[in-house]
Design a protein around this nucleic acid. Structure first.
Lengths: 215, 215
DNA sequence: CTCCGAAATGAGTGATTACTCACTCTAATT
DNA sequence: AATTAGAGTGAGTAATCACTCATTTCGGAG
Protein backbone atom coordinates (compact mmCIF):
# COMPACT_ATOMS: atom_id res chain seq x y z
CA UNK A 1 0.00 0.00 0.00
CA UNK A 2 2.69 2.41 1.05
CA UNK A 3 4.94 1.43 -1.79
CA UNK A 4 2.16 1.65 -4.33
CA UNK A 5 1.28 5.11 -3.13
CA UNK A 6 4.92 6.03 -3.37
CA UNK A 7 5.01 4.72 -6.88
CA UNK A 8 1.98 6.65 -8.03
CA UNK A 9 3.11 9.65 -6.00
CA UNK A 10 6.48 9.59 -7.66
CA UNK A 11 4.82 9.28 -11.03
CA UNK A 12 2.44 12.11 -10.23
CA UNK A 13 4.99 14.44 -8.67
CA UNK A 14 7.49 14.40 -11.46
CA UNK A 15 5.02 15.84 -13.91
CA UNK A 16 3.28 18.09 -11.37
CA UNK A 17 -0.17 16.81 -12.18
CA UNK A 18 -3.37 18.40 -10.92
CA UNK A 19 -5.96 16.56 -8.85
CA UNK A 20 -8.14 15.99 -11.88
CA UNK A 21 -5.25 14.56 -13.85
CA UNK A 22 -4.51 12.09 -11.09
CA UNK A 23 -8.15 11.09 -11.03
CA UNK A 24 -8.13 10.62 -14.80
CA UNK A 25 -5.07 8.36 -14.65
CA UNK A 26 -6.46 6.32 -11.79
CA UNK A 27 -9.81 5.92 -13.54
CA UNK A 28 -8.12 5.05 -16.82
CA UNK A 29 -5.96 2.34 -15.23
CA UNK A 30 -9.02 0.85 -13.58
CA UNK A 31 -11.13 0.92 -16.72
CA UNK A 32 -8.46 -0.28 -19.15
CA UNK A 33 -7.59 -3.11 -16.81
CA UNK A 34 -11.19 -4.24 -16.39
CA UNK A 35 -12.46 -3.98 -19.95
CA UNK A 36 -9.40 -3.61 -22.12
CA UNK A 37 -8.27 -0.51 -23.97
CA UNK A 38 -10.46 -0.80 -27.06
CA UNK A 39 -13.60 -1.57 -25.06
CA UNK A 40 -13.13 1.40 -22.72
CA UNK A 41 -14.73 4.68 -23.72
CA UNK A 42 -13.37 8.08 -22.83
CA UNK A 43 -16.82 9.13 -21.61
CA UNK A 44 -16.81 6.24 -19.14
CA UNK A 45 -13.34 7.13 -17.90
CA UNK A 46 -14.40 10.76 -17.50
CA UNK A 47 -17.47 9.76 -15.55
CA UNK A 48 -15.48 7.45 -13.28
CA UNK A 49 -12.92 10.19 -12.70
CA UNK A 50 -15.64 12.74 -11.94
CA UNK A 51 -14.39 14.96 -14.70
CA UNK A 52 -15.72 16.42 -17.93
CA UNK A 53 -14.80 14.46 -21.02
CA UNK A 54 -13.11 17.51 -22.50
CA UNK A 55 -10.71 17.60 -19.57
CA UNK A 56 -9.21 14.30 -20.69
CA UNK A 57 -8.46 15.70 -24.12
CA UNK A 58 -7.01 18.87 -22.66
CA UNK A 59 -4.19 16.80 -21.20
CA UNK A 60 -4.02 13.91 -23.63
CA UNK A 61 -4.35 14.61 -27.32
CA UNK A 62 -5.84 11.23 -28.10
CA UNK A 63 -7.15 8.18 -26.31
CA UNK A 64 -4.04 6.28 -27.32
CA UNK A 65 -1.94 9.10 -25.88
CA UNK A 66 -3.67 8.46 -22.56
CA UNK A 67 -2.78 4.78 -22.75
CA UNK A 68 0.85 5.44 -23.60
CA UNK A 69 1.11 8.13 -20.93
CA UNK A 70 0.11 5.55 -18.36
CA UNK A 71 2.11 2.56 -19.48
CA UNK A 72 5.33 4.11 -20.77
CA UNK A 73 6.52 5.90 -17.61
CA UNK A 74 5.62 2.89 -15.51
CA UNK A 75 7.82 0.77 -17.71
CA UNK A 76 10.80 3.11 -17.44
CA UNK A 77 10.53 4.38 -13.91
CA UNK A 78 9.01 1.46 -12.17
CA UNK A 79 8.95 -2.00 -13.62
CA UNK A 80 12.53 -2.20 -14.82
CA UNK A 81 14.01 -0.83 -11.55
CA UNK A 82 11.67 -3.02 -9.53
CA UNK A 83 12.83 -6.17 -11.20
CA UNK A 84 16.49 -5.24 -11.27
CA UNK A 85 16.62 -3.66 -7.79
CA UNK A 86 19.13 -5.11 -5.37
CA UNK A 87 20.79 -7.25 -8.00
CA UNK A 88 24.10 -5.75 -6.96
CA UNK A 89 23.67 -7.45 -3.60
CA UNK A 90 24.30 -10.68 -5.42
CA UNK A 91 27.57 -9.48 -6.75
CA UNK A 92 28.42 -8.30 -3.22
CA UNK A 93 27.98 -11.95 -2.20
CA UNK A 94 25.02 -11.15 -0.01
CA UNK A 95 23.31 -14.27 -1.29
CA UNK A 96 25.59 -17.26 -1.36
CA UNK A 97 23.19 -19.59 -3.15
CA UNK A 98 20.87 -19.10 -6.09
CA UNK A 99 17.94 -20.38 -4.03
CA UNK A 100 18.39 -17.65 -1.46
CA UNK A 101 18.62 -15.05 -4.17
CA UNK A 102 15.51 -16.29 -5.99
CA UNK A 103 13.51 -16.57 -2.80
CA UNK A 104 14.49 -13.11 -1.64
CA UNK A 105 13.77 -11.64 -5.06
CA UNK A 106 10.35 -13.19 -5.44
CA UNK A 107 9.16 -12.71 -1.85
CA UNK A 108 10.46 -9.19 -1.85
CA UNK A 109 8.49 -8.06 -4.83
CA UNK A 110 5.41 -10.23 -4.67
CA UNK A 111 3.09 -7.83 -2.86
CA UNK A 112 4.16 -5.01 -5.07
CA UNK A 113 3.68 -7.10 -8.19
CA UNK A 114 0.17 -8.01 -7.07
CA UNK A 115 -0.73 -4.35 -6.74
CA UNK A 116 0.77 -3.63 -10.10
CA UNK A 117 -1.42 -6.27 -11.69
CA UNK A 118 -3.86 -3.78 -13.22
CA UNK A 119 -1.05 -2.11 -15.13
CA UNK A 120 0.59 -5.44 -15.94
CA UNK A 121 -2.74 -6.63 -17.30
CA UNK A 122 -2.98 -3.56 -19.50
CA UNK A 123 0.55 -4.13 -20.76
CA UNK A 124 -0.06 -7.80 -21.52
CA UNK A 125 -3.27 -6.84 -23.26
CA UNK A 126 -2.02 -4.05 -25.43
CA UNK A 127 1.57 -4.90 -26.26
CA UNK A 128 0.51 -7.36 -28.97
CA UNK A 129 -1.52 -4.67 -30.71
CA UNK A 130 0.42 -1.45 -30.07
CA UNK A 131 3.72 -1.49 -31.95
CA UNK A 132 4.73 1.71 -30.15
CA UNK A 133 4.30 0.06 -26.75
CA UNK A 134 5.97 -3.12 -27.91
CA UNK A 135 9.05 -1.24 -29.07
CA UNK A 136 9.23 0.67 -25.79
CA UNK A 137 8.68 -2.47 -23.79
CA UNK A 138 11.48 -4.15 -25.64
CA UNK A 139 13.96 -1.30 -25.32
CA UNK A 140 13.23 -0.24 -21.77
CA UNK A 141 12.22 -3.39 -19.98
CA UNK A 142 13.38 -6.50 -21.79
CA UNK A 143 16.88 -5.33 -22.65
CA UNK A 144 17.51 -3.93 -19.17
CA UNK A 145 16.17 -6.93 -17.37
CA UNK A 146 17.94 -9.45 -19.54
CA UNK A 147 21.18 -7.51 -19.20
CA UNK A 148 21.01 -7.41 -15.42
CA UNK A 149 19.77 -10.94 -15.09
CA UNK A 150 22.53 -12.19 -17.34
CA UNK A 151 25.15 -10.47 -15.21
CA UNK A 152 23.78 -12.19 -12.12
CA UNK A 153 23.69 -15.49 -13.94
CA UNK A 154 27.31 -15.16 -15.07
CA UNK A 155 28.28 -14.41 -11.50
CA UNK A 156 26.70 -17.61 -10.26
CA UNK A 157 28.08 -19.55 -13.19
CA UNK A 158 31.59 -18.46 -12.25
CA UNK A 159 30.94 -19.70 -8.74
CA UNK A 160 29.96 -23.03 -10.28
CA UNK A 161 26.41 -22.79 -8.96
CA UNK A 162 24.71 -22.81 -12.36
CA UNK A 163 25.10 -25.03 -15.39
CA UNK A 164 26.88 -23.76 -18.49
CA UNK A 165 23.81 -23.10 -20.59
CA UNK A 166 23.97 -19.67 -22.34
CA UNK A 167 22.85 -16.92 -19.94
CA UNK A 168 20.07 -15.69 -22.22
CA UNK A 169 18.48 -19.14 -22.22
CA UNK A 170 18.82 -19.45 -18.45
CA UNK A 171 17.29 -15.99 -18.13
CA UNK A 172 14.41 -16.89 -20.41
CA UNK A 173 13.67 -20.09 -18.52
CA UNK A 174 13.91 -18.47 -15.10
CA UNK A 175 11.76 -15.50 -16.00
CA UNK A 176 9.25 -17.78 -17.72
CA UNK A 177 8.76 -19.74 -14.51
CA UNK A 178 8.39 -16.73 -12.25
CA UNK A 179 5.96 -15.02 -14.60
CA UNK A 180 4.23 -18.33 -15.28
CA UNK A 181 3.49 -18.75 -11.59
CA UNK A 182 2.23 -15.18 -11.18
CA UNK A 183 0.17 -15.39 -14.36
CA UNK A 184 -1.44 -18.69 -13.31
CA UNK A 185 -1.96 -17.52 -9.78
CA UNK A 186 -3.37 -14.05 -10.28
CA UNK A 187 -4.71 -13.78 -13.82
CA UNK A 188 -5.73 -17.21 -15.14
CA UNK A 189 -6.90 -19.02 -12.03
CA UNK A 190 -7.31 -16.59 -9.15
CA UNK A 191 -10.44 -18.51 -8.15
CA UNK A 192 -8.48 -21.66 -7.25
CA UNK A 193 -7.15 -22.15 -3.77
CA UNK A 194 -3.43 -21.54 -3.73
CA UNK A 195 -0.85 -22.15 -1.06
CA UNK A 196 1.36 -19.31 -2.20
CA UNK A 197 4.41 -19.95 -0.05
CA UNK A 198 4.41 -23.63 -0.93
CA UNK A 199 3.97 -23.04 -4.64
CA UNK A 200 6.73 -20.43 -4.68
CA UNK A 201 9.00 -22.86 -2.92
CA UNK A 202 8.19 -25.56 -5.47
CA UNK A 203 8.83 -23.14 -8.30
CA UNK A 204 12.21 -22.23 -6.86
CA UNK A 205 13.12 -25.85 -6.30
CA UNK A 206 12.03 -26.67 -9.82
CA UNK A 207 14.12 -23.90 -11.27
CA UNK A 208 17.13 -24.87 -9.19
CA UNK A 209 17.14 -28.55 -9.79
CA UNK A 210 16.85 -27.69 -13.42
CA UNK A 211 19.70 -25.25 -13.42
CA UNK A 212 21.78 -26.18 -10.39
CA UNK A 213 24.98 -28.02 -11.09
CA UNK A 214 25.23 -31.32 -9.28
CA UNK A 215 28.65 -31.93 -7.80
CA UNK B 1 -1.27 -26.88 -44.09
CA UNK B 2 -2.97 -30.20 -44.61
CA UNK B 3 -3.76 -30.60 -40.95
CA UNK B 4 -5.00 -27.09 -40.60
CA UNK B 5 -7.32 -27.56 -43.53
CA UNK B 6 -8.51 -30.78 -41.96
CA UNK B 7 -9.16 -28.99 -38.74
CA UNK B 8 -11.19 -26.23 -40.34
CA UNK B 9 -12.84 -28.75 -42.65
CA UNK B 10 -13.89 -30.83 -39.69
CA UNK B 11 -15.19 -27.75 -37.98
CA UNK B 12 -17.04 -26.66 -41.10
CA UNK B 13 -18.48 -30.06 -41.99
CA UNK B 14 -20.09 -30.82 -38.70
CA UNK B 15 -22.33 -27.81 -38.90
CA UNK B 16 -22.82 -27.96 -42.68
CA UNK B 17 -21.80 -24.40 -43.25
CA UNK B 18 -22.22 -22.54 -46.52
CA UNK B 19 -19.34 -21.02 -48.46
CA UNK B 20 -20.16 -17.58 -47.14
CA UNK B 21 -20.19 -18.81 -43.57
CA UNK B 22 -16.75 -20.32 -44.00
CA UNK B 23 -15.50 -17.06 -45.44
CA UNK B 24 -17.01 -15.16 -42.52
CA UNK B 25 -15.30 -17.40 -39.97
CA UNK B 26 -11.95 -17.21 -41.74
CA UNK B 27 -12.18 -13.43 -42.00
CA UNK B 28 -13.27 -13.12 -38.38
CA UNK B 29 -10.36 -15.20 -37.12
CA UNK B 30 -7.94 -13.10 -39.13
CA UNK B 31 -9.40 -9.80 -37.99
CA UNK B 32 -9.87 -10.68 -34.33
CA UNK B 33 -6.34 -12.01 -34.21
CA UNK B 34 -4.81 -8.92 -35.78
CA UNK B 35 -6.72 -6.16 -34.00
CA UNK B 36 -8.42 -7.84 -31.08
CA UNK B 37 -12.13 -8.48 -30.67
CA UNK B 38 -13.26 -5.07 -29.44
CA UNK B 39 -11.30 -3.18 -32.09
CA UNK B 40 -12.67 -5.30 -34.94
CA UNK B 41 -15.82 -4.05 -36.64
CA UNK B 42 -18.39 -6.31 -38.22
CA UNK B 43 -18.35 -4.15 -41.36
CA UNK B 44 -14.62 -4.79 -41.73
CA UNK B 45 -15.08 -8.53 -41.29
CA UNK B 46 -17.87 -8.52 -43.85
CA UNK B 47 -15.73 -6.63 -46.34
CA UNK B 48 -12.79 -8.98 -45.81
CA UNK B 49 -15.09 -11.99 -46.25
CA UNK B 50 -16.59 -10.52 -49.41
CA UNK B 51 -20.03 -10.64 -47.86
CA UNK B 52 -22.77 -8.21 -46.91
CA UNK B 53 -22.77 -7.15 -43.29
CA UNK B 54 -26.30 -8.46 -42.86
CA UNK B 55 -25.15 -11.94 -43.79
CA UNK B 56 -23.04 -12.09 -40.66
CA UNK B 57 -26.04 -11.34 -38.48
CA UNK B 58 -28.17 -13.89 -40.34
CA UNK B 59 -25.93 -16.61 -38.95
CA UNK B 60 -24.70 -15.05 -35.73
CA UNK B 61 -27.14 -13.13 -33.62
CA UNK B 62 -24.53 -10.80 -32.17
CA UNK B 63 -20.88 -9.97 -32.63
CA UNK B 64 -20.07 -11.78 -29.39
CA UNK B 65 -21.94 -14.80 -30.73
CA UNK B 66 -19.53 -14.81 -33.66
CA UNK B 67 -16.56 -14.78 -31.30
CA UNK B 68 -17.92 -17.60 -29.17
CA UNK B 69 -18.85 -19.62 -32.25
CA UNK B 70 -15.25 -19.50 -33.35
CA UNK B 71 -13.46 -20.10 -30.09
CA UNK B 72 -15.75 -22.53 -28.27
CA UNK B 73 -15.81 -25.41 -30.80
CA UNK B 74 -12.07 -25.08 -31.32
CA UNK B 75 -11.58 -25.51 -27.61
CA UNK B 76 -13.76 -28.62 -27.42
CA UNK B 77 -13.01 -30.33 -30.70
CA UNK B 78 -9.49 -29.31 -31.34
CA UNK B 79 -7.24 -27.91 -28.69
CA UNK B 80 -8.01 -30.37 -25.93
CA UNK B 81 -7.69 -33.46 -28.20
CA UNK B 82 -4.57 -32.01 -29.77
CA UNK B 83 -2.81 -31.61 -26.48
CA UNK B 84 -4.00 -34.87 -25.02
CA UNK B 85 -3.61 -36.96 -28.20
CA UNK B 86 -1.39 -40.03 -27.95
CA UNK B 87 -1.02 -39.76 -24.21
CA UNK B 88 -2.11 -43.38 -23.99
CA UNK B 89 1.08 -44.30 -25.81
CA UNK B 90 2.89 -43.39 -22.63
CA UNK B 91 0.84 -45.79 -20.60
CA UNK B 92 1.51 -48.40 -23.28
CA UNK B 93 5.19 -47.82 -22.49
CA UNK B 94 5.90 -46.49 -25.96
CA UNK B 95 8.11 -43.85 -24.40
CA UNK B 96 10.42 -45.21 -21.77
CA UNK B 97 11.75 -41.86 -20.59
CA UNK B 98 10.06 -38.56 -19.89
CA UNK B 99 12.48 -36.79 -22.23
CA UNK B 100 11.40 -38.92 -25.14
CA UNK B 101 7.77 -38.30 -24.34
CA UNK B 102 8.22 -34.54 -24.00
CA UNK B 103 10.26 -34.30 -27.16
CA UNK B 104 7.77 -36.32 -29.16
CA UNK B 105 4.86 -34.34 -27.77
CA UNK B 106 6.35 -30.93 -28.48
CA UNK B 107 7.87 -31.72 -31.89
CA UNK B 108 4.72 -33.49 -32.92
CA UNK B 109 2.45 -30.57 -32.31
CA UNK B 110 4.68 -27.61 -32.94
CA UNK B 111 3.78 -26.95 -36.57
CA UNK B 112 0.14 -27.34 -35.79
CA UNK B 113 0.40 -25.02 -32.81
CA UNK B 114 2.08 -22.39 -34.95
CA UNK B 115 -0.81 -22.45 -37.39
CA UNK B 116 -3.28 -22.27 -34.56
CA UNK B 117 -1.60 -19.15 -33.25
CA UNK B 118 -4.29 -16.78 -34.58
CA UNK B 119 -6.94 -18.59 -32.58
CA UNK B 120 -4.65 -18.96 -29.59
CA UNK B 121 -4.02 -15.24 -29.73
CA UNK B 122 -7.76 -14.56 -29.74
CA UNK B 123 -8.23 -16.86 -26.78
CA UNK B 124 -5.42 -15.26 -24.79
CA UNK B 125 -6.87 -11.87 -25.61
CA UNK B 126 -10.48 -12.47 -24.76
CA UNK B 127 -10.45 -15.00 -21.95
CA UNK B 128 -9.62 -12.34 -19.34
CA UNK B 129 -12.64 -10.27 -20.39
CA UNK B 130 -15.25 -12.84 -21.43
CA UNK B 131 -16.48 -14.77 -18.38
CA UNK B 132 -18.39 -17.12 -20.70
CA UNK B 133 -15.21 -18.04 -22.56
CA UNK B 134 -13.22 -18.31 -19.35
CA UNK B 135 -15.71 -20.76 -17.87
CA UNK B 136 -15.71 -22.85 -21.05
CA UNK B 137 -11.95 -22.73 -21.26
CA UNK B 138 -11.67 -23.92 -17.71
CA UNK B 139 -14.21 -26.75 -18.04
CA UNK B 140 -13.26 -28.01 -21.47
CA UNK B 141 -9.55 -27.40 -21.77
CA UNK B 142 -7.91 -26.95 -18.43
CA UNK B 143 -9.67 -29.77 -16.59
CA UNK B 144 -9.18 -32.22 -19.46
CA UNK B 145 -5.57 -31.37 -19.99
CA UNK B 146 -4.67 -31.40 -16.33
CA UNK B 147 -6.47 -34.70 -15.86
CA UNK B 148 -4.64 -36.37 -18.72
CA UNK B 149 -1.32 -34.81 -17.88
CA UNK B 150 -1.65 -35.87 -14.27
CA UNK B 151 -2.30 -39.48 -15.32
CA UNK B 152 0.86 -39.46 -17.39
CA UNK B 153 2.77 -37.90 -14.54
CA UNK B 154 1.56 -40.49 -12.07
CA UNK B 155 2.64 -43.21 -14.51
CA UNK B 156 6.14 -41.84 -14.66
CA UNK B 157 6.19 -41.26 -10.92
CA UNK B 158 5.40 -44.93 -10.35
CA UNK B 159 8.31 -45.81 -12.61
CA UNK B 160 10.47 -43.62 -10.40
CA UNK B 161 11.30 -41.25 -13.24
CA UNK B 162 9.76 -38.16 -11.67
CA UNK B 163 10.09 -36.63 -8.22
CA UNK B 164 7.26 -36.91 -5.72
CA UNK B 165 5.92 -33.38 -6.07
CA UNK B 166 2.08 -33.34 -6.37
CA UNK B 167 1.05 -34.02 -9.99
CA UNK B 168 -0.88 -30.79 -10.34
CA UNK B 169 2.22 -28.78 -9.49
CA UNK B 170 4.36 -30.81 -11.86
CA UNK B 171 1.71 -30.30 -14.53
CA UNK B 172 1.61 -26.57 -13.90
CA UNK B 173 5.38 -26.25 -14.10
CA UNK B 174 5.69 -28.37 -17.22
CA UNK B 175 2.88 -26.65 -19.09
CA UNK B 176 4.22 -23.26 -18.02
CA UNK B 177 7.56 -24.00 -19.64
CA UNK B 178 6.14 -25.34 -22.89
CA UNK B 179 3.72 -22.44 -23.25
CA UNK B 180 6.39 -20.01 -22.05
CA UNK B 181 8.66 -21.06 -24.87
CA UNK B 182 5.92 -20.83 -27.50
CA UNK B 183 4.72 -17.49 -26.15
CA UNK B 184 8.22 -16.00 -26.14
CA UNK B 185 9.05 -17.48 -29.50
CA UNK B 186 5.95 -16.67 -31.51
CA UNK B 187 4.07 -13.87 -29.78
CA UNK B 188 6.44 -11.73 -27.70
CA UNK B 189 9.69 -11.86 -29.66
CA UNK B 190 9.10 -13.35 -33.09
CA UNK B 191 11.54 -10.80 -34.46
CA UNK B 192 14.50 -12.30 -32.60
CA UNK B 193 16.58 -15.03 -34.19
CA UNK B 194 15.70 -18.35 -32.65
CA UNK B 195 17.31 -21.75 -32.99
CA UNK B 196 14.08 -23.60 -32.42
CA UNK B 197 15.42 -27.14 -32.12
CA UNK B 198 18.14 -26.06 -29.73
CA UNK B 199 15.79 -24.01 -27.57
CA UNK B 200 13.27 -26.83 -27.40
CA UNK B 201 16.04 -29.19 -26.36
CA UNK B 202 17.15 -26.78 -23.64
CA UNK B 203 13.60 -26.41 -22.44
CA UNK B 204 13.20 -30.19 -22.20
CA UNK B 205 16.51 -30.57 -20.41
CA UNK B 206 15.54 -27.79 -18.04
CA UNK B 207 12.23 -29.39 -17.27
CA UNK B 208 13.82 -32.80 -16.78
CA UNK B 209 16.68 -31.86 -14.56
CA UNK B 210 14.15 -30.02 -12.50
CA UNK B 211 11.80 -32.92 -12.19
CA UNK B 212 13.93 -35.98 -12.85
CA UNK B 213 14.85 -38.00 -9.82
CA UNK B 214 18.57 -38.42 -9.36
CA UNK B 215 19.49 -41.94 -8.35
C1' DC C 1 -41.06 -23.12 -66.30
C1' DT C 2 -43.25 -22.13 -61.64
C1' DC C 3 -42.96 -21.89 -57.16
C1' DC C 4 -41.05 -21.58 -52.60
C1' DG C 5 -38.15 -21.13 -48.72
C1' DA C 6 -33.80 -20.14 -47.35
C1' DA C 7 -29.72 -17.23 -48.21
C1' DA C 8 -28.11 -12.98 -49.05
C1' DT C 9 -28.36 -8.23 -49.45
C1' DG C 10 -27.36 -3.17 -48.33
C1' DA C 11 -29.56 0.97 -47.22
C1' DG C 12 -31.09 2.55 -42.95
C1' DT C 13 -31.45 2.86 -37.56
C1' DG C 14 -30.45 4.85 -33.16
C1' DA C 15 -26.76 4.65 -30.12
C1' DT C 16 -22.14 5.49 -29.12
C1' DT C 17 -17.62 6.81 -30.37
C1' DA C 18 -13.38 9.88 -30.07
C1' DC C 19 -12.62 14.39 -30.32
C1' DT C 20 -13.52 19.88 -30.77
C1' DC C 21 -14.34 24.37 -29.40
C1' DA C 22 -16.19 28.49 -27.58
C1' DC C 23 -16.62 29.53 -23.17
C1' DT C 24 -16.20 29.99 -17.82
C1' DC C 25 -13.67 29.75 -13.73
C1' DT C 26 -9.66 30.21 -10.75
C1' DA C 27 -5.68 32.00 -8.98
C1' DA C 28 -1.48 34.35 -9.37
C1' DT C 29 0.81 38.69 -11.14
C1' DT C 30 1.04 43.36 -11.98
C1' DA D 1 -8.67 46.32 -9.65
C1' DA D 2 -7.23 44.75 -14.04
C1' DT D 3 -4.97 41.32 -16.72
C1' DT D 4 -3.70 36.91 -18.04
C1' DA D 5 -2.80 32.00 -18.54
C1' DG D 6 -4.15 27.76 -18.02
C1' DA D 7 -7.56 24.28 -16.05
C1' DG D 8 -11.94 22.79 -16.66
C1' DT D 9 -16.31 22.50 -18.99
C1' DG D 10 -20.18 20.31 -21.72
C1' DA D 11 -22.86 20.85 -25.68
C1' DG D 12 -21.94 19.66 -30.23
C1' DT D 13 -19.95 16.96 -34.43
C1' DA D 14 -18.93 13.76 -37.85
C1' DA D 15 -17.85 9.18 -38.01
C1' DT D 16 -18.52 4.73 -36.85
C1' DC D 17 -20.69 1.17 -34.30
C1' DA D 18 -23.67 -3.19 -33.94
C1' DC D 19 -27.72 -4.50 -35.61
C1' DT D 20 -32.51 -4.53 -38.47
C1' DC D 21 -35.51 -5.35 -42.15
C1' DA D 22 -37.85 -4.97 -46.47
C1' DT D 23 -36.40 -6.65 -50.61
C1' DT D 24 -33.89 -9.42 -54.03
C1' DT D 25 -31.38 -13.55 -55.48
C1' DC D 26 -30.64 -18.36 -55.66
C1' DG D 27 -31.25 -23.37 -56.01
C1' DG D 28 -33.85 -27.27 -55.96
C1' DA D 29 -38.64 -29.67 -56.03
C1' DG D 30 -42.78 -30.38 -58.51
Amino acid sequence: MIEEELMLQQLFDEDKLTDKQKKIITAAIETFSEKGYAASSTSEIAKKAGVAEGTIFRHYKTKKDLLVSIVAPLMTKFIAPLVVKDFNKVLDREYETVEEFLRATIENRRDLLIRMLPVVKIMLQEIPFQPELRAQFFDLVVKNIFNSVEKVIKGYQEKGLLIDMPPESIARLTITNILGFLFSRYILFPQLEWDDELEIERTIQFIMHGLGKKD
